[in-house]
Computed example of a mutant assay.
Amino acid sequence: MSDLSSNAALFAPRSGPLARAVDWIIRHPRMFVFLLVLPITLWLGIVYIGALIALLIQSFFSIDEFSGVVVHEFTLKTYGELLRPYNLDIILRTVAMAASVTIAAAILAFPIAYFAARYAKGKWKALFYVGVMLPLWSSYLVKVYAWKLVLAKEGILNWIFAKLHLTWLLDGFLSLPVIGGNSLSVSYIGTFLVFLYIWLPYMIIPVQAALERVSKDLTEAASDLGATPRQNFRMVLLPLALPGVVAGSIFTFSLTLGDYIVPQIVGNSRLFIGQAVYTQQGTAGNIPLAAAFTVVPIVIMGIYLWGARKMGAFDAL
């Protein structure tokens, strides 16, 4: 009886409009949850989505070629400028870099994630997580500038190639058209290496999580039925781990697609989408074209996320 009386006293209506409102919210869990998510919903709806809508509207304006003033009239002229060879080259270059980084990250991440999922136990698994996450604990700019020094002509990488008498091999890579340059720090090869290093942890973790959910009994059963290791990987392991690979590719692809700091510090004078947005918005003052450039990765990622959802990638996030 004492418990019942104490519970009744606890949930008894209190006086005052504020107290009664609190009591009513507590007695209605759905309203309580709604009020909890309301602030973040307003933030996303007003600040984030509102900014995207404003950006989209700006992309339908144009700029007067003589006065440099933005003409606030809806037109597709700015999007037509994206199809000019110079701007189209920027888009294709960025997408090619993002795709190559994503593919290379998946190739490197899979064996690392497989070892962690199958063989790392206890403290070794904890050490694995620390090793993967450790690069993320340092400053983004510090890592990029550190790689700038490593890849420079006077950097440690060139010194190692010289000590191994493999300078001819490095010079051969740098002499390749398009991707080469005077040194690794001013070439697409160097930009690719820095992107790969920075975003690789974002691929390893989802792949490792997907492989954790693949039962070892399935691969053993396939081996018992006569499957070779290659067939086991191609027909059992890879299809089951593919959602994790796609989930990791969402991070690596999107982050590479929108980055402008890495190609600004490590790379040559050819622009990527992020640099084009910065240049058009800051130096040229062409806000509509900068907005149109930012719509490009949004559309690409929208299509990419739709395909990833069809493959069940969100289950591995």
Rank of each mutant, 00 (worst) to 15 (best):
M1S: 14
S15G: 09
G16T: 04
R20T: 15
V22E: 08
D23V: 05
R27A: 08
H28N: 13
F32G: 10
L44P: 10
V47T: 10
Y48G: 06
I49H: 09
F61W: 11
F66K: 11
V71E: 07
H72M: 01
E73K: 02
F74C: 11
R84L: 09
R84P: 11
Y86T: 06
L88T: 10
I91W: 03
A96K: 11
V101W: 00
T102V: 07
T102E: 02
A105V: 08
F115G: 09
K121M: 01
G122Q: 12
S138T: 10
Y140S: 06
Y145K: 08
F161H: 11
L164P: 13
L170D: 15
D171H: 10
L174Y: 05
G180P: 08
S183E: 14
L193F: 12
F195I: 08
L196A: 01
Y197A: 09
Y197V: 02
L200K: 05
Y202S: 15
I205R: 02
A209M: 01
A209T: 15
S223A: 13
L225I: 09
P229E: 07
F233R: 03
R234L: 01
V236L: 02
L237Q: 09
A241C: 01
L242M: 05
G248T: 04
L257S: 04
Y278W: 04
W306K: 13
W306N: 12
